[in-house]
Amino acid sequence: MPRNVFGKYLRDNLRALLGWMVAVAAVTLLYSAFWPSMADSAEAMDEFMATFPSGVLEAMGWQDLTSAEGYLNSTVFALLMPILMVVAAIVIGTRAIAGDEEDGGLELVLAHPVGRVSVLVQRFAAVVVFIAALGFASFLTLAVFAPTLDIDIAVGYLLAATSMTTLVALCYGSLALAVGAVTGRRGLALTTGALFAVIGYVGNTFALQVSELEWLRFLSAFYYALDPNPLANGFDAGFTAILIAVPLALLVIAATTFTRRDVAV
């Protein structure tokens, strides 16, 4: 039985969490399972890739497909897995305050002897755990199956890469939570989170082809997570710090406003 706001929020979302974990693990496994056959036809693939203009490849997030790191970066970490994680994070972050408020549940909790900051921080912590569990599902899948799939990457690097993607999701989840805490509007929280995620994704892929848009990548959490290439280099201290600082800053902004505004109007 959950005894506090943190535990109750996780308990209420346990089914969703298990569903998302299965999805993230499945997508991770599906892509990486193709690596052995891809490695066998590496030369043919290289020739095929050479026929594209280099800009197209970058725009699609494709890298060198002949190494395991390049392959995973171009598949698992480039598209579906981070998108799943970001979507899950925005959904759970929106529900944490604004969603619950519009459903009427938040009013009941706040009529109890709990402070608003406490409720906000506990819900945020639950969102962190939720997203971390998704990242862990992806990491575990890679770590367990890497040896059998001829993926020769140290576990520490796998951990670094999945952690960075997890932090990307946390950034956008925190944004949705913060917008919800400031405004109390579910729709606004959801669309702001999604909008920034799309800008961030595009900013780190297609926009790189247009020099006028290159600055966009600094607004992109994906840039800070993927540019240091953690699969090959491990954690990058500076960029990791940025990806941790952003959610914390959003939490502080959310807290200052949430304690002052009217709830359930």
Binding site: M1, P2, R11, D103, G105, L108, P113
Partner: peptide, 20 residues
Amino acid sequence: LPISSRRPARELLTYLGDLR
């Protein structure tokens, strides 16, 4: 009280009691 949780009423009541 538009709570739409799939959890049993007792869990909500215990939780709210624990908040107190």
